[in-house]
Amino acid sequence: MKQMAIANQRNYLVVESNEFIRYGRYSLTAQQFNILAYCVSRIKPGMEEFETYDFDLKDLCAVCGISQNTKNYANFKENLEKLANMSFWWETDEAHELHRLFENVKIYKRDTRVSIKIDDVLKPHLLNQRENFTAYLYENVLVMKSAYSKDMYRILKSYSFQGEYEVPLILLKDRLNCANEYEGRFDNFRKYVLDKAMEEINQYTDLEVSYKPIRVGRSIQKIHFTIKPKEREGEVRAMLERGIVLNRIENEKNQMRLEGFEDNE
């Protein structure tokens, strides 16, 4: 895949309903997030039905900025298999509902092609969004290493028009699907989830975010987030930071070609 095509795909928009972002609960790894967002970014405006998306894992590696090798192809296939078997919880006023993310996943045996179809239950949240939705560049989530950072960015982006977001700590942990992992001391949740998310969001995306724990008595009960769009200078800096990370493999290849050319002179 040519570099221009790679850059174009990284700049596709991911468009999701705010309801799906805020209330859908699923536990994904960073790579699984990248795969799901890649599929959603390929949805065209005006579509009434989900298409089956066929793509080559070589191209996905290029878009993700990782090496095209057997190990990475195997990792993608393993995560696709997990996504195919994965369900997510959807909370309504009346019940907790269990749904699937993908209706069909096909992994070809003799090459690196795959095909994916998103489950129709997600049509109200991913197709023809006209109000109460959030749109962001695919590369904004692609570049972040932490799955919590990717998810936190989506949540804060959906509230960015308000400039702030306050949430009970227990609900935030539940939404990020980490209530059991970080059931104890707040310090661990702060260090490995909140601080990491703030660092990556501020470094790589179009948002400038911060948070303040709110105590009730001696315990922390809520988290108050402040959310601002970056000024032009900050947005350009974040774009350059994303480019450094995502183009690392290609830059290393170019450097090797240059060194080989110089050696032959």
Rank of each mutant, 00 (worst) to 15 (best):
L176R: 04
L176A: 05
N177P: 00
C178V: 10
C178S: 01
A179F: 09
A179R: 14
N180S: 10
N180L: 10
N180E: 12
E181Y: 02
E181K: 13
E181C: 01
E181P: 01
Y182H: 11
Y182C: 02
Y182M: 04
E183W: 08
E183L: 14
G184R: 10
R185D: 08
R185N: 09
R185I: 02
F186D: 03
D187C: 02
D187T: 11
N188E: 09
F189G: 11
R190E: 15
R190A: 14
R190W: 08
K191P: 01
K191I: 11
Y192R: 09
Y192S: 07
L194M: 15
D195Y: 10
D195G: 05
D195E: 14
D195H: 09
D195F: 10
K196P: 00
A197V: 09
M198Q: 15
M198E: 12
E199K: 15
E199S: 15
E200T: 05
E200P: 07
E200H: 05
I201P: 05
N202M: 13
N202Q: 11
N202K: 14
N202T: 12
Y204Q: 03
Y204W: 07
T205A: 10
T205R: 08
E208T: 08
V209I: 15
V209M: 10
Y211R: 09
Y211L: 08
Y211E: 02
K212Q: 13
K212P: 00
K212R: 12
P213C: 04
P213M: 04
V216D: 10
V216T: 13
V216M: 09
V216E: 12
G217Y: 12
G217M: 10
R218S: 14
R218C: 02
R218W: 08
S219I: 11
Q221H: 07
I223G: 01
I223W: 06
I223A: 05
I223F: 06
H224F: 15
F225C: 07
F225Y: 13
T226F: 08
T226V: 11
T226W: 00
I227D: 01
I227S: 04
K228M: 10
P229V: 13
P229I: 09
P229T: 13
K230H: 10
E231K: 13
E231W: 01
E231T: 06
E231V: 11
R232M: 06
R232V: 05
G234V: 14
G234P: 06
E235T: 01
E235F: 03
E235A: 11
V236E: 04
V236Q: 04
V236C: 01
R237L: 14
A238T: 06
A238V: 06
M239V: 00
L240D: 00
L240F: 05
L240Q: 03
E241W: 00
E241D: 02
G243M: 00
I244K: 14
I244T: 05
I244V: 13
V245G: 00
L246H: 03
N247Q: 06
I249G: 00
I249S: 00
I249Q: 03
